[in-house]
């Protein structure tokens, strides 16, 4: 039935030179066109052309990996928009955030970004949960599981660095407490076990201004330096790394034989 040649608006668009130059195939009606459509698109060919039947079932994947990725995209877009109005300095940060909801029409961009971030953390956990429950981490997918764990960690870090940016009470105290844990890192933090062993004569190599916490905060306490460093990590550094890992992750899903199938 689908193979019957239709003539109509849709079909003539599909036959036009512009459409064909972009999508190569016409409107995907025939089996062949549908397969070629997926194969020829740089985005769609993340997917294979054909899948085992259970792999498209919601009941199997919960679509949680896909939703994690979608939420990441939502966060990227809303985050870029927020950057137009937000200045990462102690002087402006708080008031800029306050102004966001008042001065911009339809000011829910901040809400979308914040609740989207919460949703992404949950989605990534649930995705891991489903991968575990279907035993999909077993060979040959061990490596992709490990990549996933790192992305889970990065998702939490992204959320954590973003937490500081509104520069309100919630923000600085959560980060103060969090960053002070870094101070206790063995050997690398100045209040960590073993740090006092790293000394030349009287000079401590790992001190308040030369330990891992300082590298994170760019200062002795959560202040101007910390705000800027967290901002840069949140907006550029961590998204950059996680985007690369996502590319690896998706590539590996396919190279490891696609969505896991009963063996």
């Amino acid at each position: 039935m689908a193979d019957k040649k239709k003539t109509g608006l849709l079909a003539s668009i599909g036959d036009s030179q512009i459409w064909k130059s972009i999508f190569r195939t016409g409107v995907p009606v025939t089996r062949r066109q549908r397969m070629m459509g997926v194969l020829n698109s740089v985005f769609l060919h993340l997917h294979p052309v054909r899948l085992p039947k259970h792999a498209v079932k919601l009941k199997y994947t919960w679509c949680m990996g896909g939703l994690s990725f979608f939420l990441f995209l939502v966060l990227t877009i809303s985050g870029i928009l927020l950057m137009f109005y937000y200045r990462p300095t102690v002087e402006y940060a708080y008031t800029d955030i306050m102004d966001l909801s008042e001065q911009v029409p339809l000011g829910i961009m901040r809400e979308i970004h914040r609740w989207g971030a919460h949703a992404m953390v949950i989605a990534v956990w649930l995705h891991m949960f489903r991968v575990f429950m279907t035993g999909s981490y077993k060979p040959p997918r061990e490596f992709n599981w490990a990549v996933g764990v790192i992305m889970l960690f990065l998702t939490l870090l992204l959320s954590f660095t973003g937490y500081l940016l509104p520069w309100d009470q919630l923000a600085i105290w959560a980060i103060t407490v969090g960053a002070n844990m870094a101070r206790a890192t063995p050997f690398l933090g100045h209040e960590g076990p073993g740090a006092s062993l790293l000394a030349i004569g009287d000079i401590n190599l790992v001190s308040m201004t030369s330990d891992i916490r300082f590298a994170l905060l760019g200062g002795r306490f959560v202040g101007e330096g910390a705000l800027l460093r967290f901002y840069v990590l949140h907006c550029v550094g961590l998204p950059f790394i996680i985007a690369i890992l996502m590319a690896v992750h998706f590539w590996r899903v396919r190279k490891d034989g696609g969505i896991s199938t009963p063996v």
């Binding site: 899948l51 039947k53 939703l67 809400e111 979308i112 949703a119």
Partner: peptide, 29 residues
């Protein structure tokens, strides 16, 4: 027993994305 990604998977994905978007919008508003 295999199915084509287009339309069987892309439609599910699109519906999931739309539902997620609606959910986020409602939550945010």
């Amino acid at each position: 027993e295999k199915v084509l990604v287009w339309p069987d998977l892309v439609y599910i994905e699109m519906i999931a994305l739309i539902l997620m978007t609606v959910f986020l919008l409602v939550w945010s508003i």
